[in-house]
Design a binder for these strands. Structure first.
Lengths: 135, 135
DNA sequence: CTGTATCCCCCGGGATACTG
DNA sequence: CAGTATCCCGGGGGATACAG
């Protein structure tokens, strides 16, 4: 499929990005990629997530068929969340993304540092502006 | 590298997700993966993006060393944006993500439809609740 | 053409309290 | 334990106008 289609307005990648895009979904999927988790396990392990967002994000993931929810009618209640096969298949690309992040984190750090320093420097731009006239 | 590290609080994937996460960055990178673009070309081709967000997102991408900006001091001005090598390397994982999206868009659609229908159905859940007592 | 500067609204999402 | 229900604030981001 041509990439152009992916860039059209109603393209599928937008839907996916709306899921992968929010950090919580991705972090949850990565966690569940390790093993099945209970609600509070996720709550404890994913630092900074609020109960509300954990609930909402899990609901969305279940709705999209990426995560399965199993409730045991015991007291106290127990609910297990685990990746579906679809969810596990998503693990592949987001793991690739994760690996890229790890491999290039320093590149980004350096780029930022260099860029910020250039901005604060007194003057004399690092790159001589290209000169040209265009039609 | 163990995935656990990626799930720690200050993990690199969070930084990356903050970039890839917002839909605009990814769409811009995909566009620039095709070819160099001028400002207004991106503005026209990326449906729905505001001038403000295009500017801000491009600035962030340049700052992170993913995109290079070349301004020609002509009148009218002309500015070219293109992926750096780092940017092109990012293209690989997000293309993988894109391909996943294309391959599984229907799966998600169906999952959603099924889930929503089950919610609206009069009664009789589709999956018989598992019964068990746990320690 | 390529931005910058403002205004301003909306809602994402945190904090807190309550329930089955 | 596993959620729901409310309140409420900040800032993300659109619309618009202006500038080099």
């Amino acid at each position: 499929m041509p990439v152009d289609d992916a860039l059209a307005q109603d393209c599928p990648i937008r839907e996916v990005l709306d899921r992968v895009g929010d950090k919580w979904s991705t972090l949850i999927v990565l966690r569940l990629g390790q093993r099945t988790h209970r609600f509070n396990e996720l709550h404890r392990e994913i630092d900074g997530i609020s109960q509300r967002m954990l609930t909402l994000t899990l609901r969305a993931l279940v709705r999209d068929g990426l995560v399965s929810r199993t409730a045991y009618p015991t007291v106290p209640p127990r609910v297990d969340y685990e990746l579906t096969e679809l969810g596990r298949s998503l693990l592949t690309p987001i793991t690739a993304l994760h690996e890229w992040a790890v491999a290039h984190r320093d590149d980004i750090r350096h780029a930022r540092a260099g860029h910020d320093q250039a901005a604060h420097a007194p003057h004399a731009g690092p790159s001589p502006e290209p000169l040209a006239a265009h039609p």
